[in-house]
């Protein structure tokens, strides 16, 4: 899977699992911050993203604090998955 494909797939997972109603993958800028404004994600969403990574890519992150740089954007998530997926 190429980086572009992974980014697209991650966006789809986020929309589905985080109930991002009315948001399409095209609406999500892969390099924009995931948290704070924009998608309005919070700490519960961060825990859900940990679940998404584990369920779909077998990638484990112990807690949301250590995951902070990984969670910056869809692109940083994709890079982490590329490096760590099984």
């Amino acid at each position: 899977m190429t980086m572009e494909q992974l980014i697209q797939e991650l966006k789809e997972h986020l929309i589905e699992e985080l109930n991002l109603e009315d948001i399409t993958p095209e609406d999500i800028d892969a390099e924009a911050p995931l948290f704070g404004e924009g998608l309005g994600l919070d700490s519960i969403d961060a825990l859900e993203i940990i679940l998404i990574l584990e369920k779909n890519y077998g990638v484990r992150l112990a807690n949301s604090a250590e995951a902070k740089p990984v969670f910056y954007s869809v692109k940083t998530l994709a890079e982490y998955v590329m490096q760590n997926r099984k």
Partner: peptide
Amino acid sequence: HAPEGTSPAVFV
């Protein structure tokens, strides 16, 4: 009994 556990967004 999924290995990744349950969903915090549901549990809350």
